[in-house]
Design a protein around this nucleic acid. Sequence first.
DNA 1: CGCACTAGACTTTTT
DNA 2: GTCTAGTGCG
Length: 706
Amino acid sequence: MNLLDGLNERQKEAVINTEGPIMVMAGAGSGKTKVLTTRISYLIKELGVNPYNILAVTFTNKAANEMKERIAKNLDMDTKWMWISTFHSFCARVLRDEIDNLEGYRRGFQIIDDDDQLKILKEIKDDTELDFRPKEMSKLISKYKNDIKFNFFEERNKDTFNEVNKKYSDYLVKNNLFDFDDLILKTIELFKKNPNVLERYQEKFQYILVDEFQDTNTPQYNLVFMLSTRHHNIFIVGDDFQSIYSFRGAKIENIRRFKNDFLEHKLILLEKNYRSTTEILNLANDCITHNPNQIKKVLESNNKSGKKPLYYPAKRTAEEIAFIVDNIKKINISGVPYKEIAVLYRANYLSRELEDAFIKAKIPYKIYGGLSFFSRKEIKDMIAYLQIIINHNQDFSFKRIINEPKRKIGGATLEKLAAVAERMNLSLYDAIDFYESKSQGAINLVEFKKTIDTIYNQIENVRLPDLIDIILKETGYKEEMKKEEDPDIFNDRMDNIQEFKSVLLEAEDYYEEETKKKLLEALLADLTLRTDKNDTDNNDSVRLSTYHQVKGLEFDTVFMYAMNEGIFPSDMIVSDAEMEEERRICYVGITRSKNHLFLSSSESRVKFGSMDYFSESRFIKEMKRPLLDIFNPYNIKTEFTKPQVKLETKKEEKVTSDITLGDKINHKLFGDGVVVSQEGDVIKVAFSAKFGIKTLKASHPAIRKL
DNA sequence: CGCACTAGACTTTTT
DNA sequence: GTCTAGTGCG
């Protein structure tokens, strides 16, 4: 089969124009991934380019893996070793190979995540007189590193920042650690200070491709720019309409910068949308026209027609949610699997109220967001153990697990040990040999060292998953877990560890290093970058998540929940530029749907524990009415009335909700009856023979307790 | 050292 | 409402 089959003219153009800088502006659903993967396949198959000479960078592991898979399929070859990766793992890979050229760092460096970063900052706070909030500081440090502007309220805060920032980066260098931002920055530093190294990579990467270009920040742009100056074959794909990560430093201006840096570039527009119905596209196009500073661009319809998006302005969240639940059921019965349905919202806290309703309605769902698999405590502990086993000198990991499980090695003992290490210029682990004391602490330290040595001596002879079992047993970790946690949590944690073991099993095949130790080294270096959420189980459930998390995905049916002013757009927005980005988030939401789109709002809702009133989102107000159908169960005018009645409704709900099993009640229409079942607000009532058993809402005004 | 209690935060977050 | 960081006590 020909690679180019099934591509439209524009897409083909983007594939076969292999030489020189190319900028592809690809609208939502216009076949961007297809173009990227076909282009790489084309380079290899038709032009005979060595895969090693191609570099493709993305932002998520998921996108990188998907590209690899598609190319593997196209060319029927193994692609796991190709340079198709996230910005961060690309940098990690370069740094691992070139670390000797980077001053201050050594082999076996470790990458830390946000959690670790916070820990270090707390440590700095405890060790100094500096007064700051670690969480706040970590945000500032990241902003600083990614060239994001920020202001200090007071001059002395600036001094504090500078001092903490200095201490923090010294800490990282001393402990041979990189945070996520460092991976990019230090790679740039490496290239700047070693022109010969840079030249090698410039020479190597004859073809460079960048996905989601509108999301690149300044350092990422600089990195890509540096690499491409030799061959100039740089291919970027982006969509300024979908730029929603400016808070992470992403700069739409990079598109303009690219035009200036590569004046001879060729521009290709992909505007033909293959995803959504005409009705959905019309709404998306209408939405984005309200951004004054956006380049005009219209998604062309695929002439696939469907239903108009349906908007429900509810009075109460309960009604709004009932609308969603009802429609999910209907859509599902009509043949759409749950996993093709998504309920999207602006912020994670909005998922709670939905979750309760989904449980009651017995709709399978999955919430995305929250802790990633690799940031769970037990997993991080296991990683730290592996780290310390193969590299005893990792003080950072040492500190994490020295008293985990509890070995009665407390702050005092550790401080003394740190002093010894400092004096003799040793790692904490090696300093144990010189810790001269007869205290219990000393005995415990030696005991710990023995345990680690015992495990170390076994690594070459066992399979990696078994190594975890050995750690669990030898260190007493499992026993302590069993003792400390209640059975449910214990089982949960063991399940996670089991999952981790399967990751290790996979790794044994994946990596080609000759010793177990080297294999582990390579794996551990990658692990922190594997933040993909537990995405593996492909059971059929509705997806609940934020708009940000579904960028790049598509669903048959999308619900846009809580379309209220102050929620979406968020009330944290202050500038016009931010409001435009907020509108782009709305655009991203709309364009996720293929066939059905539902939007809803509620006049009253509970935010942070207290009831409040919200007007409908400006994004709804500004949508041209003919593009939307309004759902109106009461058949009254849909203009919002001001909420005088609301407090009463609330009271009523409280008064009547104490109806439970066996209660006698009166219903305005059905007369007297007895409650025969109750599940939350949902009750079943046995009325007289004429009406039989009815399922009702306990809080309904027609019901009165007798 | 580890707990229990209180005060405060609470938008998004590809890595 | 719910989580978590920080404090203070046993």
